[in-house]
């Protein structure tokens, strides 16, 4: 007997009983479950639909760039917006970014532009964003100078660099020359080039603290400070300050700067005899303050405004030893 040769009667099984029940025949809990199920199914369908739509849109854009949405199909960059906490301006930004006249917002590589901005050591951090339809927004944080120095790289002309609190030396674009003229010169520091950048000068944090304390608490003294030397900072934990009237003051980095400045102020007040001017004061020894007196006070005009630049050897960029005449005289005084 073969199955193919006969027609088998179809028995109905309980599985043919429809399981659909009208909501009115349900209990409140059953209706609640039904609603929850519908909600879950709807949310699931919406999510699935959303994902499918997004995938289709992405694939459409990938296949056909002309299908790109309006925002992505932006026009060329028409405006640059610079937000900064310093002195750099929009012209500097335009020069730095060097964006072509036909560059479009989406066609521009933001990472590349950011690298250009950060290439200027004056810029500490930068964020670049697209503001559709045609604006490029650049937000930067700048370094503030605490000192300045003269440096000569190879055969080039000596150039003045500004030094920030974190030891980074930079050209200093856009700063007011009058403000720059008030900054003391940095001496005894060693600049080393690594690639396109200069290595940060070590110990600038201590120098910045001393200068900030002096500027804040004894501005009259700070104004007379012409050179700050870090030559003995690493070895003796001392910072030497040379004033415009030829006095050398040694500060210890382990002591309290405010106390040392107060002592200096007291000493200067106590030794106001013009015939015996102070030539050297060592504040790094705590309560004991050795001083040296001179015989005649040099005039301020005799002090050069900036040291003559000297060529340094190739390789590491060496900062010029500034004010050697002052150093010599100061040492002699002590």
């Amino acid at each position: 007997m073969s199955k193919d040769s006969i027609t088998l009667p179809e028995s109905r099984t309980w599985r043919e009983i429809p399981q659909e029940v009208k909501p009115r025949a349900m209990s409140p809990e059953g209706r609640r479950r039904l609603v929850m199920r519908i909600v879950r199914a709807s949310v699931g369908a919406l999510v699935m639909g959303g994902v499918a739509w997004a995938a289709w849109e992405v694939s459409a854009v990938v296949r056909d760039p002309s299908a790109m949405p309006d925002a992505a199909k932006s026009d060329r960059i028409r405006s640059l917006v610079l937000v900064t906490d310093g002195v750099l301006d929009r012209d500097w930004l335009a020069r730095t970014l060097a964006i072509g006249p036909n560059a479009t917002l989406m066609g521009t590589d933001l990472m590349q532009l950011r690298a250009r901005v950060l290439a200027d050591a004056q810029v500490k951090s930068a964020t670049i964003a697209r503001n559709f339809p045609d604006t490029l927004s650049v937000r930067i944080s700048e370094r503030s100078p605490v000192a300045r120095l003269m440096a000569q790289d190879g055969g080039a002309q000596p150039a003045m660099l500004l030094v920030s609190r974190d030891g980074v030396a930079f050209a200093g674009t856009g700063f007011d020359p009058a403000m720059v003229a008030t900054l003391p010169w940095l001496d005894g520091a060693r600049l080393t080039r690594r690639g396109d950048r200069l290595e940060p000068i070590e110990g600038m944090g201590a120098v910045a603290d001393l200068l900030a304390s002096a500027k804040l608490e004894a501005e009259n003294l700070y104004k007379t400070w012409q050179v700050v030397s870090v030559a003995r900072l690493a070895s003796d934990s001392q910072i030497e300050v040379h004033t415009r009237d030829g006095m050398k003051v040694v500060f210890g980095t382990t002591g309290d700067y405010l106390r040392q400045i107060a002592r200096l102020d007291l000493l200067l007040d106590a030794s106001s005899d013009p015939t015996r001017p102070l030539r050297a004061v060592d504040l790094s020894l705590g309560a004991q303050v050795p001083v040296a007196y001179g015989t005649a006070a040099p005039t301020i005009d005799a002090v050069p405004a900036a040291p003559p630049a000297r060529t340094v050897a190739q390789g590491p960029l060496i900062i010029l030893p500034a004010f050697s005449n002052f150093q010599t005289e100061a040492h002699r005084g002590i």
């Binding site: 309980w14 009983i17 399981q19 029940v21 025949a25 059953g30 479950r33 039904l34 199920r37």
Partner: peptide
């Protein structure tokens, strides 16, 4: 059979 099944379906369970 249907009555028994519908009692359970009233709780929205298969």
């Amino acid at each position: 059979l249907a009555d028994n099944i519908h009692v359970i379906r009233g709780f929205n369970l298969e």
